[in-house]
Amino acid sequence: MGALIQLEQVAKVYGKGQAAVNALDRIDLIIQRGEFVAVMGPSGSGKSTCMNILGCLDTPSRGVYRFGGVDVGALTRDQRALLRRNYLGFVFQGFNLLSRTSALENVELPLIYRGMPIRQRRERAREALAAVGLTGWEQHNPAELSGGQQQRVAIARAIVSDPDVLLADEPTGNLDSARSREIMDLITRFNQERGLTIIMVTHEADMAAYARRRIDFVDGRIAGAADAPSGARNK
């Protein structure tokens, strides 16, 4: 069986001519099902760019991205939306929860687009909120929740649709270390219990330590990697 995620010579260029920025410079990357990967690197090194491509939110300027063997570049806009809907869960750095919308309704959202009937949907959303330890907070709006709680709602929303991959861009970026550890424990549990593949951007070595593999970005390239599992690196 092929790798779940495979990047081949993927480049992303922003801008044109003199002003062009090589945000990603022909990177190769393979991630297997069930891995827990931490992505690190200095600011502006291309981590978010890479995550967006992996999450099918953005398309590479050059190179091929295969998800489960499928060339994502050949898919239509709606097919990519379906791929996101069915296989990917996102936790954004800025949470991106809908304001003035209860935690439950926020978590429900991906299921609405799947056309799941309301009772089942509510049930699943409740379970997801319970899994992140937010039972009893269902009816609260994001504005009434703490940063850590909001981040947990965002995680619940990402996992409610039972994705194959959880992509988290600095999920602990604006949290204190105690809250950060809670979130990391949660993510680790999902990785271990559900076999969820996790790709997580972080600036903090403490957080990266939870992962079993670490990728370092430098100037749009992948630098030497630590703890690479079973020769998955550099094909």
């Binding site: 939110l57 709606d78 939306a81 996101r84 809907r85 069915n86 996102f90 991106n96 929860l97 687009y113």
Partner: peptide, 16 residues
């Protein structure tokens, strides 16, 4: 716009 982006990111189709 951000809300729409979020909806699209979590799998809303264009026509939805």
């Amino acid at each position: 716009t951000r809300e729409i982006g979020t909806r699209l990111a979590i799998g809303a189709l264009e026509r939805q």
